[in-house]
């Protein structure tokens, strides 16, 4: 019963995602472009796609020891692994104005920063435990219209891009329980976005439907996403650069800079279907019908804006 109901809804299961989309249509040799945030950053910068500014990079333990000195003047920054997964190992740090550092409002000793960077370099947070590099990026700030929705964190928009078309999107709202992180399995809210209307339509918290943010009580359904067209455009544009055909792009709408690509993911999760309350399969199949055979060179044919419109149409048709 359960089975048939999911089937009718067109829910994409993990086996099918792996077999048809992440394994079959994503060229394995291109994974490093998205797994390594530094490579993604370079890729996007070359095409003038906005990304968080890189403040420092430490690939060796002795470079990690130099970090506090280099970062003393910054008002705030984010320390993260270049090849981390699922938001692990990320520290958000503020300057205290006197050359010291604060984490979540409390002072954090310099040694702790160095120790954390050393852990990153040892591969503690990297995908397969390999040697990694610690990156320091500017801290993005939530757009004013979204700031009230996510106290203590920066929400980001996850866009699933398939063969150059945006097919599904949700906004991830950090909660106190998620520790300010925008990861659903850590307790962030996922709110599905209606691609055509640029508004959230449903929301889930830990796989259960919710309508208000547990920390603020504000409604998380029916919220308009600022500059949403631009979000979809840079998601599609960045995906084009990777040569991968099934990608989850994470975009932050920054208060100052507007939409910025945070990272790309070659194995995006499937919980987005819960947040949008829609299955992925009908949309993916519609893209395949529209574009025809898999190996044709369709990407260059259409400008990014037109593909965004196509994606919005497909989403609207499948929803209707």
């Amino acid at each position: 019963m359960m089975w048939g109901a999911l089937q009718r809804k067109g829910v994409l299961g993990i086996n099918r995602r792996n077999a048809r989309y992440t394994l079959f249509s994503n060229d394995r040799s291109r994974y490093p472009l998205v797994d390594d945030k530094l490579a993604t950053k370079r890729l996007c910068s070359e095409a003038n796609i906005p990304v968080p500014r890189l403040l420092a990079r430490a690939g060796l333990h002795r470079e990690a020891r130099l970090l506090p000195e280099r970062l003393r003047r910054e008002a705030s920054f984010v320390l993260k692994p270049a090849r981390g997964a699922m938001g692990n190992g990320i520290l958000v740090i503020h300057g205290d104005g006197k050359g010291g550092f604060l984490r979540a409002g409390r002072p954090i000793p310099e040694e702790d920063l160095v120790y954390h960077a050393a852990g990153i370099i040892s591969g503690l947070y990297s995908l397969a435990g390999h040697q990694d590099a610690a990156l320091v990026e500017e801290r993005l700030e939530a757009h004013l219209e979204l700031a009230s929705l996510a106290p203590g964190g920066v929400p980001d928009v996850r866009v699933i891009v398939y063969r150059g078309l945006p097919v599904m999107a949700m906004i991830r709202l950090p909660t106190l329980r998620s520790g300010g992180r925008a990861n659903l399995h850590q307790g962030a809210i996922g709110a599905g976005i209606d691609l055509a209307r640029s508004r959230t339509s449903h929301a889930v918290l830990r796989h259960r439907p919710v309508s208000v943010h547990p920390d603020t009580g504000e409604s998380v359904v029916g919220v308009g996403i600022p500059e949403f067209e631009r979000v979809l455009e840079i998601a599609v544009h960045a995906t084009d650069r990777t040569g991968l055909s099934y990608v989850g792009a994470d975009v932050v709408v920054d208060a100052v800079r507007g939409p910025v690509i945070l990272e790309l993911n070659a194995r995006p999760g499937l919980v987005i279907q819960l947040a949008t309350r829609a299955g992925l399969r009908p949309r993916l199949d519609a893209v395949d019908r529209l574009l025809g055979r898999h190996d044709c060179d369709w990407q260059q044919a259409l400008p990014v804006q037109e593909r965004v419109v196509l994606g919005q149409q497909i989403a609207a048709e499948q929803a209707g």
């Binding site: 999911l6 089937q7 829910v11 299961g13 993990i14 819960l274």
Partner: peptide, 20 residues
């Protein structure tokens, strides 16, 4: 390429809502 039991558990909220 069918569903895993875990998929059924994870997406049960989608089904409960029924009508679609």
């Amino acid at each position: 390429t069918g569903y895993r039991v875990a998929d059924l558990v994870r997406f049960r909220a989608l089904v409960r809502d029924g009508s679609g």
